[in-house]
Simulated assay, not measured.
Amino acid sequence: MPRTPAAHETAGAPDPQRSGPTYVELMERLARAAAGYYRDLTASAAEHGLTMAQAKMLTLLRQPLPMRALAGLLACDASNITGLVDRLEAQGLVSRHLDPGDRRVKNVVATEKGVEVVRLIRAGMRATSAAFNRLDDDDRRALYELLGRLHPDGTP
C-alpha cells in the first residue's frame, strides 16, 4: 500500500497552480531576515547594557501592557517576565502600575528614560537601517502590507 506523505513532508513542495517561492523557501528567507534583525537588536541593546530579551520587551511598551500580555507577546512564561521587568525597573526604564480597571493586574509602562533608550537602540541598529534604506517607498509599503497579512489578528 503506498504511503501518504505527512503534511510537513509536502509543505513547500511545488504547487503546479502557483509559480514563485515555495513555503520552505519563504520560511528560510523570513528566518534569515529575522535572524539579522535580532543580531542587530542584540548588538545595539548591549551598547546600552541590555540583553536582547530586555530590549525586545522595552520596544513592545508603546503603551502600558499587563505582564501577562507581555508574556504572550514574548512567547515566554509569565514568571520570566517578572525577572525582566525587575531588571528594567532597577535601571529606571520601566515602572509598574496597578490597572485602574482591575487592581489585580499590573501594567508595565516605559519611563521617559526607557522611551529614549528604545530610540537609541533603534538608531544603533545600523544593519537593519541599511537594509530598509535599500527599499524605496513602494517597496516599504508593500513589505509592510505583506507582513501585516502574515498575522492579520496581530498574534505572532
Rank of each mutant, 00 (worst) to 15 (best):
H151V: 09
P14W: 01
V109S: 00
R134D: 15
P64L: 08
G92L: 04
R134E: 15
A75W: 00
A69V: 14
A34W: 03
I81V: 15
S129D: 10
T82C: 02
G101P: 00
R18S: 05
E89V: 02
A46K: 13
R68M: 09
E89D: 15
L147I: 13
D137C: 02
G148M: 02
R141L: 15
L88N: 07
T10C: 03
R96W: 04
A34K: 05
P14T: 11
R119L: 04
G83Y: 11
L143F: 13
H48E: 09
V24Q: 13
A7H: 06
Q54T: 01
L84I: 12
V118G: 08
D153K: 10
G20Y: 00
R3M: 07
H151T: 14
A35K: 05
V85S: 08
L120Q: 15
L73Q: 14
R104I: 04
R39C: 11
V115I: 12
G72P: 02
V117S: 05
M125V: 12
M27V: 13
G12Y: 02
E47F: 01
L120G: 01
L26K: 06
P14E: 14
A127T: 11
I81D: 00
P100L: 11
P100C: 07
A34Y: 02
L135S: 05
A71D: 10
L88V: 09
Y38D: 14
L147Q: 09
G124T: 12
D86S: 11
G83R: 15
K56I: 01
L60I: 04
R3W: 03
L93M: 01
A46V: 03
A13E: 13
D137I: 03
M125F: 04
A35P: 00
R126P: 00
V94H: 01
V24F: 02
L84K: 04
L135A: 11
Q17N: 09
Y37E: 12
Q91S: 13
D138T: 11
R96Y: 06
L88I: 09
A45Q: 07
R32M: 12
G124H: 08
L26Q: 06
A13L: 08
A71Y: 10
L146Y: 04
R68V: 09
D153T: 09
T22S: 15
G148N: 12
Q63A: 13
A90L: 06
P64R: 06
A123G: 04
D138F: 03
I121E: 04
P5I: 06
E47V: 01
I121F: 05
A55V: 07
F132H: 10
C76K: 12
H48C: 00
